[in-house]
Structure formats: C-alpha cells, structure tokens
C-alpha cells in the first residue's frame, strides 16, 4: 500500500461521507411508518410486515458478507480489519435472529419454517430488496476499505438514524427494545467505517470511488426503505418514475 503524504484528506473524506449520509438520513420513508404507529394504527399485521421485511434483508446479508470475506486475502490489511469485519458479520447475524425471534414471540407464525414459507418473509429477486442486496454483493469487486466506506459511512448511517427513531418513538415497548438493542452495534459499524477510511484510503482514485459507491449504495438502500414502508403500510408498489432519490456525487 503506498504511503500517504497526509492523513488530512482521509479524515476529510470520512467526515464528508458521514455528513452527507446524516443529511440524507434526516428524512426517510420509514418516518411514515413511525407516524402511522404513533397514531395508534399499527396492527399485528403491520408489525409482522415490518419485522418480516427487515428480517428478509438481514438473512440475505449472509451472502453479502460471505462474499466479501472471500475477497480479503492474508495480510491485505493489518489484523484489526479482520477483527472488526468478523464482529460486524456476527452482529448482523444476531440482528437477523432477533427479528425472527420477535416474529415468533408474537405468534405471528408458529415456526421458523413457516416464516420462510409466508409471503411476508419471501426474498424476491425483482424487488428493491433484491437490488440493494445485489448492490452490496457487487461491492465485493472493490477493495475492502472502499466497500466498508460505501456501506458503513453510507447506508449504515441511514439505518442508524431510523433505528434510533424507532427505538425512541414507537409506542410498542418490545419493538422499541429490539431496535434499541441494535444501536450500539450499528454505531460501532459506523465508527469502524470512519476508522478504515481514515487509515486505508490513500489514493485519489480510492477517494473518488468511495464517494461514488457510497452514493449508489445509499440510493439503493433508500429505495429498499421506500419499498419496505409501502409494504408495511399496505400501499401500492411504486410505479415507474414515481420515486426518485438524489444521486449527486459532488
């Protein structure tokens, strides 16, 4: 890895990515779900739809992280990178299990197998969920520090934001507890993203790639949230051109 003349541009890049993501996280389609719930309209079915859709995303992340891990070779990075990525993989799995547990605890389905078979728990290729998973899977084509920049300083920042609001504002205590319990993990992933950008992004092209890929990843994540919110609230799926998300890279 070439030596960097200064750590300043890397710190600036991390700060810039974070700031942009925080701005985009201020308002997301998930706000409509919170407002609906706070208005007392959230039924068991809404809850099931929400948990099932979030679970479906998390269970597909095994394929994303598995693919990413295969793309890190011995001594590509100092050992801390592997420790942190190992923990992130484990955290995502824990959160996947949590969503499944909450669905079962609420008796929304009788068994895990029934959850897989239920229409709400299906993974479908031709969906925004699919697009986001495929987007993440494609990040395997890039060096690890660049894909971590794209995910952990992009979509993860948005995920943290709506999760914090759910943890604080949802009227259902047990749902709040589920989301609240995930905050420390998601925050740590973001901090890890900042650390890795500051440590390992050295070249101009990597800076530019991190910016571009972060934008694309966030865009697909926001579309996933849009699809999720519509699904939870029983709204029609988006029509062509109906939903647009800004994708400026500068």
């Amino acid at each position: 890895m070439p030596a960097s003349p200064s750590a300043k541009p890397r710190a600036a890049l991390a700060a810039q990515l974070l700031q942009q993501s925080e701005q985009e996280a201020a308002v997301t389609p998930m706000d409509a779900v919170i407002e609906f719930a706070r208005a007392g309209k959230f039924t068991n079915d809404h809850c099931f739809r929400l948990l099932a859709r979030l679970w479906t995303l998390k269970r597909m992340l095994y394929y994303v992280y598995g693919g990413w891990a295969q793309g890190i070779n011995l001594n590509d990075y100092p050992p801390g990178v592997a420790y942190l990525f190992g923990k992130q993989t484990y955290d995502e799995s824990t959160q996947e299990m949590q969503y499944c547990d909450e669905i079962l605890r609420r008796r929304l389905v009788p068994t895990q197998r029934a959850l897989f078979a239920h229409p709400y728990g299906q993974f479908a290729i031709a969906t925004r969920t699919g697009a986001y998973i495929f987007c993440l899977r494609a990040l395997a084509n890039y060096p690890h520090h660049i894909r971590i920049a794209a995910l952990n300083l992009g979509a993860k920042v948005i995920e943290l934001s709506w999760t914090e609001r759910f943890a604080k504002l949802l009227p259902d205590e047990s749902l709040c507890a589920v989301f609240h319990s995930q905050l420390a993990e998601t925050r740590s992933h973001i901090l890890m993203g900042r650390h890795q950008v500051e440590q390992y992004i050295h070249k101009d092209i990597d800076i530019e790639l991190a910016k571009r890929l972060c934008v694309e990843t966030k865009r697909d994540y926001l579309f996933f949230l849009e699809e999720t919110a519509r699904f939870v609230l029983g709204m029609a799926a988006e029509k062509a051109g109906e939903v647009t998300v800004q994708a400026d890279i500068d």
């Binding site: 299990m97 949590q98 605890r105 009788p110 507890a177 589920v178 609240h180």
Partner: peptide
C-alpha cells in the same frame, strides 16, 4: 441451545433485546 430449540420448533430460547444480546430461555 438456541439452534436446537429452534429446530424442534419450541422456540423458547431467544436473543435478549438488550445490547449484550444474551440468550434467554422463556
């Protein structure tokens, strides 16, 4: 215990909704 309980469809072992994520038997 979590895996086994899930497999036999009793589902009594759960990930606790706390940031430590202990496994609890309900």
């Amino acid at each position: 215990c979590y895996v086994v309980c899930r497999e036999i469809e009793i589902n009594a072992v759960v990930v606790a909704p706390s940031s430590q994520h202990f496994l609890e038997i309900d």
